[in-house]
Design a protein around this nucleic acid. Structure first.
Lengths: 200, 200
DNA sequence: GTCTATACTGGGATAGAC
DNA sequence: GTCTATCCCAGTATAGAC
């Protein structure tokens, strides 16, 4: 493959991804057809399959891009963050909310993809448990140190994750919304959860 | 229409609904095709359209059935329930959780249908806000009486509803789950939210 | 690698006999 | 009302020229 050809190919792949991101927010992952993406990217249908085997693989690529961009900071995330500290809890929630906001196309696509799966697959629970793994560890760390939690971390963490994910999805896919800024929403959630976890 | 014919028609409609309920849990609303339903119900494709204009109308009918069964008690729900009382809060959560459990087919279908909609439609937020309307009123009632809430009811209510709905969906569509009984889950949520709302 | 053209299929919806 | 047969289109995926 020549250098020029390779560059052109890279451009096509980038164009497809870019178009996909835009469409995923506008129409959603499920309602966006491969032909919609190629059309929006100004490429042909056939060309798509030179880069991805299908929509799912494209989504996986977008997810991987997102992880590469935001993942570094999270990977080295220490286990002993003290979520009983209100400022630290707020900071965590703000980061999570911001990641959702910054990567809305991928978030929307993943959410739709998860919910559209066969209920019997148990994917919703698995994804929720996986995504809140770190949070669960934070809570277990608190519990080990004698902190009295309102329930077992293995249910509290998914519950908190469920609230954050579903609420973010709802808020970020509407123009109306609760009439509150992101900061105000995060503040309200901080209050609810801080008191909920610590009781004061 | 003769009496016999009418009865037979009613049986068909019932058979279609019954088959749909079963399939919605097994494969989900989105992946269940009209032909799947008619096949499972032992009826023909053409017959389906004699009763419903499409899958959405069938879902609306199931929803209406559900409302008829469980709705009466909820409609007359007084506004002044004191959610700052732990037992009353737990009772409310338990009822909601039980309704989800009892009507899983409809819950799954509605959830999938909501999430599959165009993100730009804002349906997720609208549904969430509508479904937590009563909860919001309960919270406003508390606030009016001088109770210090951790945030505005118009965001707290949807947040709580989001947690409950998403968590219920995840838990009830998996065989694995958190290894906790429904009662234990409700108890944990009660603890989290009771302290979260009241701070003690 | 990219294009155009096309083959193929799932599944919604309808026509018309019974 | 219910059935069988069929139409029909949206979308996926591939073939083959460039």
């Amino acid at each position: 493959m020549t250098g020029v050809r390779k560059r052109r190919a890279g451009e096509t792949e980038a164009a497809l991804k870019e178009a996909a991101r835009r469409l995923f927010v506008e129409r959603g992952f499920l309602n966006t057809k491969i032909t919609d993406i190629t059309k929006a990217a100004g490429r042909s249908t056939g060309s798509f399959y030179e880069h991805f085997t299908g929509k799912d693989e494209l989504l996986a690529a977008l997810l991987s891009d997102m992880r590469g961009a935001a993942g570094a900071a999270i990977t080295e995330h220490p286990r002993d963050h003290d979520l009983s500290d209100r400022d630290e809890l707020r900071a965590h929630l703000a980061v999570a909310w911001g990641v959702f906001r910054e990567n809305l196309p991928v978030v929307v696509a993943l959410f739709q993809s998860m919910v559209a799966d066969e209920p019997g697959s148990g994917r919703a629970w698995r994804d929720l448990a996986t995504d809140t793994d770190m949070l669960r560890e934070h809570l277990e760390w608190l519990a080990e140190r004698g902190h009295a939690l309102p329930g077992p971390p293995r249910i509290l963490a998914p519950a908190m994750g469920a609230m954050l994910a579903m609420l973010a999805y709802a808020v970020m896919t509407t123009d109306e919304g609760p009439g509150l800024s992101d900061a105000e929403i995060v503040e309200a959630l901080t209050g609810l959860l801080h008191k909920g976890l610590n009781g004061d």
